[in-house]
Design a binder for these strands. Sequence first.
DNA 1: TATTGTTATACTCTATAACTATA
DNA 2: TATAGTTATAGAGTATAACAATA
Lengths: 165, 165
Amino acid sequence: MAIMNVTLRDISTSDTTIDYGPLGNDLGYMLRRAQLWIFQDFIRTMAPLDLRPAQYSVLVIINQNPGLSQITLASALGIERARLVRLLDQLEGRTLVERRPSANDRRSHAMHLSAEGERLLAETCSLVASHRKSCLAEFGGQANYATLVKLLCKFGSLEQDAAGQ
Amino acid sequence: MAIMNVTLRDISTSDTTIDYGPLGNDLGYMLRRAQLWIFQDFIRTMAPLDLRPAQYSVLVIINQNPGLSQITLASALGIERARLVRLLDQLEGRTLVERRPSANDRRSHAMHLSAEGERLLAETCSLVASHRKSCLAEFGGQANYATLVKLLCKFGSLEQDAAGQ
DNA sequence: TATTGTTATACTCTATAACTATA
DNA sequence: TATAGTTATAGAGTATAACAATA
């Protein structure tokens, strides 16, 4: 049942080897560790623009689907309506997004990026590329990265389309 | 630049297709979605034992490495000392783990599972197996699961050992 | 001085429920 | 009656800093 052993790199004092047991084979645990690592690198890399992963994902989806409603946006991102409200409050407070009245339904908003939002999103490109470079380095190459993305798309009601880069 | 499209399954009213743009190729985003899905399924499956992923991981590591200190445990799990304190308070409050005085160092604790902790951990096995079954179903098979785990081990200062199951 | 465990604080994120205005 | 957006609340998780006891 012992599956994985890890020597802790960052502990110089003791060279203790830790037995992870079933965790070494647990996809959920591995996902958590990897995601934590990537998000921390993302936050660090995007610090000049003060953009966190959730905020970035909101800007991207609005940019790709201008005019969509909040409920569609929340559903697309897999987050709660209530959570999205506060995310949008932040981004609107920085005048990066706009809640415009919907043409058809006076209950809903049509979400758009402001000119500044578009500018900021354009600025993310080089930083995102730099972030990806770190991921490739930490992980070990383009092929593995692509394999991971492809396999992970099968989760969470996501289905990848034909046009993979 | 358009990479992925997704038709939202859960929205029966509108059949809107969402363009994810660069997010469709973003490992961090895919990891977040997949991890969220898996953790939710884990929490649902383990509800009878009232064990969350973080709590489970603590029990496993202590069980595999009895007597280890809190700082070693926190480091092994990649979490803060302060966070671990509260996790252990909960588990100790349920008499699942014990903070015993360390033989060598009177500052530190030697962590052990109680008899009840061992019993509970044993009970997790069938539920964890059921959870894994869900993952395999959602994801699409044993081979892909194993590939994912193997690739993800490269992240976060984890190095897989020889003895993969 | 440095380290272990602890306490405290602030912020992000998730999960709910309830409210309002519109449909 | 149902839906879109909002508000409020509770809890988990992360990131810090500071403190007491001990090394």
